[in-house]
Simulated scan of single mutants.
Amino acid sequence: MRETPGRLLRLLSLLQSHREWSGTELASRLNVTTRTVRRDIDRLRELGYPVHAVMGPVGGYRLGAGAELPPLLLDDDEAVAVTIALHTSGPSGSEEASLRALSKLSRVLPSRLRHRVAALEASMLALPVRGPVVEPTVLTAVSAAIRVAETLRFDYVSHDGSSSRRSVEPHRLVSWGRRWYLAGWDTDRADWRTFRADRVSPRTPNGPRFTHREPPDGDLTAYLTRTMGREMWPLRCSLRIHAPAAELAGRVEGEVTPIDERTCRLELASDSYDLVAFVVGMLDVAFEVESPPELAERLRVLATRYAAAT
């Protein structure tokens, strides 16, 4: 009888491997009878684990989704990974929930795992960089609309403060640069659009069902890499670089267009002229500002400041 709790944990570990087990297989793994397996399955169900049984010669047991969250069984590597992820959780608006989960998990970690977590934490540098807070209810509403393929209706505030009402077939939630974005098909504009999730206010109920479209360019990651800066950052800067286009390849995230053999045009999107100045300065090449005049003015201010420092 004293072996029952340990056997239940071993049984649960097998069922969490995302496959179907016959009663005979489980009995062999646990070195018990099939009758004992059936009793243990009933005990797991009483604890809230949704163990489904399929009858017949090819049937068996599998762990499914239930109405409530039962206790979870994690191996050592999984427990360490979850603990570190909670320590470094991003700007999802769920920091309080993350701290509660971290407190619960830390209390039950064995000492051997606490040492591993402590070693990882000591080797990590957590920069105090936070993105805009996104309410968990927003992420939940968007992800639910994606899952059931329902058109999402929401109010949206653009970077210039103007408001609009949007109707979008949501495709994916994207975490990029400490921000959450929604990528989807804007039904009013008949085109793909990307929205900052912290500026989205969902309206209910959702709109009509839809069939998920093929991602733009056949690859959503490539599309976002190509368009994110142009669509999401308010400042557009164009510079004439006195270096061949090939010399900038792989050194800067921007659009590089050859002008001739010795010069090229660099187009950058950003939310800060200081950041543009930093990026161009790191290239260590001569350049001229083509637009906007605000960038040229900011560079003059910085140049005066740097000259005074020397």
Results as ranks from 00 to 15, higher is better:
Leu72His: 09
Met232Leu: 13
Pro70Arg: 15
Thr34Val: 12
Leu99Asp: 15
Leu8Phe: 03
Met55Ile: 06
Val301Cys: 09
Val37Gly: 05
Arg153Gly: 11
Ala81Gln: 11
Glu3Trp: 10
Gly131Glu: 03
Asp274Ser: 12
Tyr306Trp: 02
Ala190Tyr: 08
Arg112Cys: 07
Ser272Phe: 02
Leu152Pro: 00
Asp198Ala: 01
Arg38Asp: 07
Arg172Lys: 01
Gly207Thr: 02
Thr36Val: 15
Arg100Ser: 11
Met124Asp: 02
Ala141Thr: 09
Leu152His: 00
Asp186Met: 03
Ala222Met: 04
Asp75Asn: 13
Ala67Gln: 11
Ala126Lys: 13
Val142Gly: 00
Pro234His: 12
Ser22Pro: 09
Leu152Trp: 00
Asp271Ile: 08
Gly60Gln: 05
Ser28Asn: 04
Val279Glu: 07
Ile84Gly: 01
Ser201Val: 13
Asp76Glu: 09
Thr4Asn: 08
Arg230Thr: 11
Tyr156Trp: 07
Val108Asp: 05
Ser201Trp: 05
Arg29Ser: 11
Arg166Cys: 13
Leu109Val: 08
Glu95Phe: 03
Thr310Ala: 11
Ser143Arg: 01
Asp160His: 04
Asp186Cys: 03
Asp188Glu: 08
Leu295Ser: 07
Arg10Lys: 13
His159Gly: 09
Asp186Gln: 02
His18Gln: 12
Asp271Val: 07
Leu139Ala: 06
Gly184Leu: 00
Val32Tyr: 03
Ala190Cys: 10
Ser106Phe: 01
Asp274Tyr: 04
Pro292Gln: 10
Glu297Asn: 12
Ser143His: 00
Val252Glu: 09
Asp191Pro: 09
Pro50Tyr: 06
Tyr273Gln: 04
Ser98His: 13
Asp260Gln: 09
Ser272Met: 03
Val148Cys: 11
Arg116Pro: 01
Ala246Gln: 05
Pro292His: 07
Thr88Asn: 15
Met1Ile: 10
Glu3Lys: 15
Ser28Cys: 07
Glu121Tyr: 02
Glu78Ala: 13
His212Thr: 15
Phe195Leu: 05
Arg305Gly: 08
Val37Ile: 11
Pro91Glu: 06
Asp42Trp: 05
Tyr273Leu: 08
Thr310Glu: 09
Ala296Gly: 11
Arg10Pro: 06
Ala286Val: 07
Arg100Val: 14
Pro50Ala: 10
Thr263Val: 11
Arg19Gly: 02
Tyr156Met: 12
Asp186Trp: 01
Glu169Thr: 05
Arg189Cys: 07
Thr310Tyr: 14
Ala122Asn: 14
Gly161Asp: 04
Arg19Met: 04
Pro208Met: 12
Pro205Asp: 04
Pro202Ser: 03
Arg196Val: 12
Val51Trp: 06
Cys237Gln: 07
Gln16Ala: 14
Ser123Asp: 13
Arg199Asn: 13
Trp21Ser: 06
Arg196Pro: 08
Met232Gln: 10
Thr34Ala: 09
Ala243Arg: 06
Leu268Trp: 06
Gly23Cys: 05
Ser28Thr: 08
Leu74Trp: 08
Val301Tyr: 10
Ser175Ile: 05
Glu297Ser: 14
Arg39Ile: 09
Leu105Tyr: 02
Ala222Ile: 02
Glu297His: 09
Asp217Arg: 06
Cys237Phe: 05
Thr263Pro: 06
Trp233Asn: 13
Arg130Leu: 02
Gly56Met: 10
Ser98Trp: 05
Pro170Tyr: 01
Leu299Ser: 15
Val200Gly: 00
His87Lys: 03
Asp198Glu: 00
Leu30Glu: 00
Ser98Asp: 15
Asp76Pro: 09
Ser143Met: 01
Gly161His: 03
Arg199Tyr: 06
